[in-house]
Write a protein that binds this DNA or RNA. Structure first.
Lengths: 243, 243
DNA sequence: CAGTGGTCTAGACCACGTG
DNA sequence: ACGTGGTCTAGACCACTGC
């Protein structure tokens, strides 16, 4: 069973990088399912023909990227794409008291169309590429407070248009399309609510809103989602941290 | 010279953590100055009475925290607190074309006072603690586009009030007060410009602005700065990333 | 108790930048 | 050629979990 991790002569990649890629592939392909315990470090090392320390380095990187979860004394597990997991990570809106706001969502108008110039640039698509677009309204209790316009490459998310998108997208991405969101980038400005957005959010036109344009990147750093949101934050704030 | 890194019996800290703290202290105390090359991994290992791998782990952590910079084949260096270093890291405003905006600053009204309730909570101060407050206007070319109200604990930054604060603060913190900013947390909302802020920014009252409240944390995770800023972003945006 | 991740060692070799 | 950081190994022991 022991497979030597041989590399081509000119290959300069460190060994742990190869092991890392192999582990990513196993998660991505579904060979290791979410929540499942993966082999221990010595088993991985033996399989890949490297030492435990090298296997450990690969696993550590995956853990740092929130793809694996280590539990001392128990084992290492594939992260479970629960709504909480992704919500907690990427929806960083908090109340004044510091509690995170967990919104509910309502989706509407799911349609396929041709990518605009901006969408092509953001999602790195070729001319005339097809995209799935839909809109959402996020609720805080009974009050709408965020509008979202989401755009996805149709090629990557084939068949998504015929379903009604669920409350949380990223767990669906992982479960049904093997696309795991690793990081997001957001561009934030302040803007006055236009008539349409104001109506949706049930506020006066001209109310200052946060406009947040998000691009989500998959494990392989491909951009796979463009999302433009307008936030009406009453006794709440968006949170950002820089290390 | 070889000092064995002995620990108390009940001490459960890993060895590399002790080495890490020792290295931090050398930088903080000025024993290793900014820009200086530090001993190589084997020398550190010998000094601290650990193996090279353990010393390396401590150095790696410092490097990950942007306190040290490694250069293969050359050595490891204490980070230089140049304006660029801190500006690039913590002032994340960009033009539409993706270029970072590097502002100039004008400071005014540097005064000492007693911390308000909000300031005490943000900076973890005791009742009646003294703080240094001043205001800044950041310019993009000839146009003002950010107002800042900065609040610092007077105890930590003794004597700062008599100087005129420079364009960039954080390099001053490191050079003159041994306070190295490791991370910042920002709370972002949208708001309409009040009359006073509008006058400073030379815009119409009511213009939507980004309000950003920043708390900056030192290496030891003490909060050492509270800053409230209003951003008028024209063809520009604030950028946030979540891993 | 056995099995897991977490730490640590001593030594080896490689890749890179400088002189 | 030399010294540096970067990778890798084989083996050891510790700390934690669950049976």
């Amino acid at each position: 069973m022991a497979r030597k991790a041989t590399q081509g002569k000119g290959n300069k990649k460190p060994l742990y990088a190869s092991v890392y890629e192999e582990l990513v592939e196993r998660v991505r392909s579904g060979q290791w399912m979410p929540g499942q315990r993966i082999p221990n470090e010595f088993q991985i090392a033996a399989e890949q023909g490297v030492s435990q320390g090298t296997a450990r380095k690969a696993v550590s990187r995956l853990a740092a990227e929130n793809l694996l979860v280590r539990v001392q004394g128990l084992g290492t597990f594939v992260v479970e794409p629960t709504p909480e997991h992704f919500q907690f990570r990427f929806f960083s809106v908090f109340q004044a008291n510091g509690k995170r706001i967990i919104p509910r969502s309502r989706s509407t108008k799911c349609k396929v169309g041709t990518a605009s110039r901006i969408e092509r640039m953001a999602l790195d698509l070729r001319r005339n590429a097809r995209v799935v677009r839909f809109q959402r309204l996020r609720m805080r209790g009974r009050r709408p407070f965020v509008t979202e316009s989401i755009c996805l490459p149709a090629e990557t998310f084939e068949g998504l248009v015929v379903r009604s998108p669920p409350d949380t997208l990223y767990d669906l991405f992982q479960r049904d399309y093997g696309v795991l969101i690793k990081r997001i980038e957001e561009r934030i400005t302040a803007t006055a609510a236009d008539a349409k957005t104001a109506a949706k959010l049930k506020i006066a036109p001209g109310t200052p809103l946060l406009r947040i344009q998000r691009i989500a990147f998959a494990l392989d750093d491909r951009p796979v989602e463009l999302r433009v949101s307008f936030y009406h934050l009453h006794r709440a704030h968006f949170r950002a941290a820089t290390e």
